[in-house]
Structure formats: structure tokens, C-alpha cells
Computed example of a mutant assay.
Amino acid sequence: MTDLILSESLANARARLDEALSAAGRPAGAARLLAVSKTKPAAMIRKAWQLGQREFGENYVQEALDKQAELADLDAIVWHFIGPLQSNKTRDVAEHFSWVHSVDRERIVRRLNDQRPEALGPLDICLQVNISDEASKSGVSLDALPGLAEVVLTMPRLRLRGLMAIPSPAEGLSAQRAPFARLREALEDLRERFPEAPLDTLSMGMSADLEAAVLEGATMVRLGTAIFGERQTR
């Protein structure tokens, strides 16, 4: 992808998000754009940063660490881990990321807390919910969600910010909105249960269903293909 194409793609993604927010009757800036940069080279991330993008999502720990080292000169870059997280990778994530969107079990919660350097401040956490009840998908069930949230809230080096989901693909706006509505309702329930928690984040919506997610209250949308083009083979 040339610099010009990336510039146009990023501008189009921003405009699409702005239009979706307007159509939903929500204020500009009510949802942030997370650029999903997995499998993309550090040079492409650097160009997106030069174009004003600051938040990037990565799925693979070692790939992300290599990019972070190459891009260490960039100020104010924020790294989000959004992929499945294995126990043997929690230390690297706790030490090198600002956000984790894919927390779905207590063992991971405790390891991230124990391995987070105190000097970095709390690690922002989104709990991943298996909102479509797919056997092949990661995520905590809606029934188990309050219990897992309560565990996170006892951890001094973690900060529970909200929920994340990757619904099964659906055709049509109404079908796309349904799982996002369930996730929004789950967050509203957590806010009632834990009124002191800073639960301000719904990480939902990707290139294929951004508009549906924004209609249901997304505060962070994760766009990869729409910004960087088709995913490359690792």
C-alpha cells in the first residue's frame, strides 16, 4: 500500500465513523478509531501515526513487541492487545501494552495484575464476551460476566473499562445490531452492579459492521482492512 492510498483509506475510515455517529445522533468524537495493525509492517504504522492516528491494535505478542521496538521513537502511541491471550504471554502484554481487550478468564486476570509493573500505572481492561455463544469463539458467557468483572475490580494494577465482543457475521443492519445491543445491555448491567467502576468502553464494530455498532453505543471501533487493506499472511 502506498502512502497516498493509506492516507486516503485512513481519511475515509475517519469520515465513515463521523458519519455513523451523526446518523446515530451521537456527538462527534463519541467513538474512537482503533487501527488494527496486525500483520502490517512497522513502516505502515509509522505513516498512520504521521497522519494523526495514535491507537493501534495488535493480535500477536511477538510481532507486536518487534514493532514496538522499531517504533519506540514515536510519542503518544497507544498499544492495545486485542487477540487471544495465552498464559505464557501475559507478562509481555502486561509490560508493553496500555490496553487489553481480550480478557475472558480469572487466571489471565490474576497474571496480568501480578505482572503489571507498578510504575506503568493500571492496565486498562476490557472483558471479551462470547456474545453469540459460539463454541469456537473466545469470551466469557453473559452469565459468568459479573463474577469475572468483580475479580478484575479487586486487582490494584488493573482498571476495568468495559466490554469487547466479536459477533458472528450477520447480513443486514438489524441482524448486526442485535448482538451489539446485548453487549450494551450487559455493560449497563455492570454499571448498576458496580457504580464506582470506570465502565466507559464498548469495544465493538469492525470494517463490516461499524455502523451497527455505533448505533448501539460503541465507544471504540476496531478497523483493520478499511485502513490498511487486506490482511497479509503471517
Rank of each mutant, 00 (worst) to 15 (best):
P146A: 10
E150V: 02
S87A: 14
E134S: 07
R177L: 02
E192M: 11
T219M: 04
E196M: 13
L202C: 09
L127H: 02
E216C: 15
D200H: 14
L145T: 07
A213S: 12
A170V: 03
A144S: 14
A165N: 07
N88C: 04
S168F: 03
C126E: 03
V214M: 09
K137W: 13
Q128I: 02
L215E: 15
L148T: 10
V103T: 06
V140D: 08
L123F: 04
L187I: 00
S132M: 09
D209F: 03
M204N: 02
L127W: 01
S136N: 13
L85F: 11
D92M: 13
D200S: 14
L173N: 01
W99H: 14
V151A: 12
A165R: 03
L112R: 08
V151N: 12
L127F: 06
A218G: 08
S207H: 11
P198T: 12
D92I: 00
S87E: 08
E211S: 11
V93T: 05
E118H: 10
L202F: 11
L153V: 08
A197T: 08
A208L: 11
R161G: 04
T201H: 09
Q115M: 06
E171I: 06
P122D: 02
L199W: 12
V109W: 03
Q86P: 06
R159A: 10
L173E: 13
R157S: 08
L158N: 07
S168Q: 15
S174P: 00
E106S: 12
L160S: 05
R184K: 09
A170C: 08
S102M: 07
L112Y: 08
D114W: 06
L163C: 07
